[in-house]
Simulated assay, not measured.
Amino acid sequence: MTAGTVSVGAAHAVRLEAVRKVYGSGATAVTALDGVSVGIRRGGFTAVMGPSGSGKSTFLHCAAGLDRPTAGRVLLGDTDLAGLSENALTELRRRRIGFVFQAYNLLPSLTVRQNITLPSRFAGTSPDERWLREVAARVGIADRLDHRPAELSGGQQQRVAIARALVTRPELLMADEPTGALDTRTGQQVLALLRDLVDTTGQTVLMVTHDPVAASYAHSVLFLADGRLAGELAAPTPALVVERLTRLGEW
């Protein structure tokens, strides 16, 4: 199967092909990604792990079109991001990618409902009320739509952020350390929610994490080391993830 064909687009939500990303130039140049080629399976939950400086965040930013590769290409479905203008990339991210970060990024003056529907308002469209209620119910905040963020727990606020990411029906949901600000029990509830969304709705999730327990909720884990792919682990458990991380220097 040739990379970039329709069949690959059908199998992968996003694909990186020989992606290289260099920051700076000359003696101060830093290579964050070095020839990474990988496809993120559509309808799966994929975690990305590696030590600090391994290229995890750059991987996520390039996959989302937030950063342009120095070389190689990124395809969202069958769309080559390299050929898009900045305005077109912004529109693509708004319509086709949902983002969840460690910080909830909720506006305190708005209600939960208003925070969730912000993407629709920015796009100049009316939110689908039926889908809004379904999403709110799925993430467990249907009875909190008229509350403000300050009236919610940290876990509930992250659920609002997940609902906001899902309200546009994105092809890909990207999560960057989504449980980093949560206690262990609440974090595991949020991770179980993400896994359930994948298993019951076919949502694709790509998550960067440093936590082996968080990674164990994924279907598979990609490992990065020094900007290169250093292996993949299917059906991860915390113990298997830790064992693989300790051997990354041998890859």
Rank of each mutant, 00 (worst) to 15 (best):
A214E: 08
D211L: 02
Q203Y: 04
G231Y: 12
T246V: 14
Q203W: 04
L222Q: 10
L197S: 11
T200M: 00
P212E: 00
G227L: 04
A235M: 11
L240T: 15
T237F: 03
A215L: 03
L197F: 06
A215M: 01
V213T: 10
E243Y: 01
E232M: 09
L233H: 03
D211S: 11
V221E: 07
H210S: 05
G231M: 09
T204H: 03
Y217I: 09
Q203S: 09
E243S: 13
L222G: 00
A225T: 14
V208P: 07
E232C: 12
G231S: 14
S220G: 14
S220Y: 11
H219E: 13
L229Y: 13
Y217R: 03
P236W: 00
L206C: 10
L240Q: 15
P236I: 08
L206I: 13
D211T: 03
V198M: 03
E243A: 14
A239V: 13
T246W: 08
R244W: 00
A234N: 11
V208I: 14
T237D: 04
A218E: 12
T204D: 06
V221D: 02
V205M: 07
V198W: 01
G231W: 10
T200F: 00
L197T: 06
M207N: 03
L229I: 02
V198Y: 01
A218Y: 09
E232Q: 15
G227I: 03
S220E: 15
L222D: 05
H210W: 11
F223H: 12
F223D: 08
L206V: 15
T237I: 09
H219R: 08
L245E: 12
P238V: 03
V242P: 13
A214L: 09
L233W: 01
